[in-house]
Computed example of a mutant assay.
Amino acid sequence: MTPVFKKEFLGYFRSPVGYVILAAFHFAVIALALYFGYYRNSQATLFTLFVRLPWVLAIFIPAVGMRLWSEEKRSGSIELLFTLPISPRSAVVAKFLAALCFICVGLCLTFSLAITTSYLGDPDWGVIFSGYIGAALTSAAFLAITAACSALTKNQVIALVLSILICVLSTLIGSDWLAQFLANKVPTGMLDVLRLFSFEQHFEAMSRGLIDISAISFYVTLTLAFLGINMVVIER
């Protein structure tokens, strides 16, 4: 399992693509935070960073994970992989953890804004770390979805488009914008049910400093479910 993890993780840094993705992610997150009022009313706050983060992750994560299995299937190296003394389950977990660690590197780069905030004021570090925990859990769930999509096809573009579609819809499904749009079209109870499956709603609670057990359970359950789908597809 360890050799597969090292191969996948270091593979992101052996080509310019990994650095381009990290740079683009860092620029997008910081730019959106500044655009939506990072320093407003003489107060520096990370709320604008976290409030848009799920939408950036919905694009960034599929770009990172689209190659996990589709590239192996396209090049034929998947047969070579399973001639090694490693089970499909271990291979799925190793690839997933390698990509997740790379994503965490991207999240760590945005911590520069938290340091800037501490210089400009006196932020609540509990809220900041809660937000980053929520970001990591959201990333894990999005990555599990992307890995399952990547296992279904040999084409990285198809895996990218399919996983972005699922991630964006799962973020949009409980948003305030959609709730206002559907307010007079569907029963209120249905809107409440949709919110239970919304990434944005679960992440918002954690971005405000609340370590919500229901949100953690949602992310962990969804991550394990899609990793299970990934394992089933690979084993077949």
Rank of each mutant, 00 (worst) to 15 (best):
S87H: 08
A63P: 05
A94R: 01
P62V: 02
V93D: 02
P88S: 02
G76P: 03
L34F: 15
T83D: 10
W69S: 04
F82P: 01
T45Y: 09
G76R: 03
I86Q: 08
F60L: 09
L84R: 11
V93E: 00
R52L: 13
Q43L: 15
N41M: 12
V51F: 12
K73W: 02
Q43G: 08
S90C: 03
M66R: 01
I61Q: 01
P85S: 12
F50T: 06
S42K: 13
Q43T: 15
R52A: 13
Y35T: 14
S42I: 10
I78L: 11
L53E: 09
S77R: 08
G37A: 09
Y35N: 14
N41D: 15
E71D: 12
T45R: 14
V64A: 02
V64R: 00
F47L: 14
V51M: 14
L57Q: 05
I86V: 15
E71R: 06
M66H: 02
L34E: 10
E79G: 03
F36E: 08
W69I: 03
R67Q: 11
F36Q: 12
R67S: 10
L49R: 02
V64Q: 00
S42C: 05
I59L: 15
R52C: 12
V64M: 01
L46V: 12
S87N: 09
S70N: 05
L34H: 10
L68K: 02
P85H: 08
F60D: 02
I86D: 04
G65K: 01
P88Q: 06
S87L: 11
R40F: 11
V93A: 07
L53D: 07
S77A: 13
W55I: 05
E79F: 06
S90R: 10
P62E: 01
V92M: 10
T48N: 10
V64D: 00
P88A: 05
L49P: 02
M66Q: 06
N41Y: 12
S90K: 11
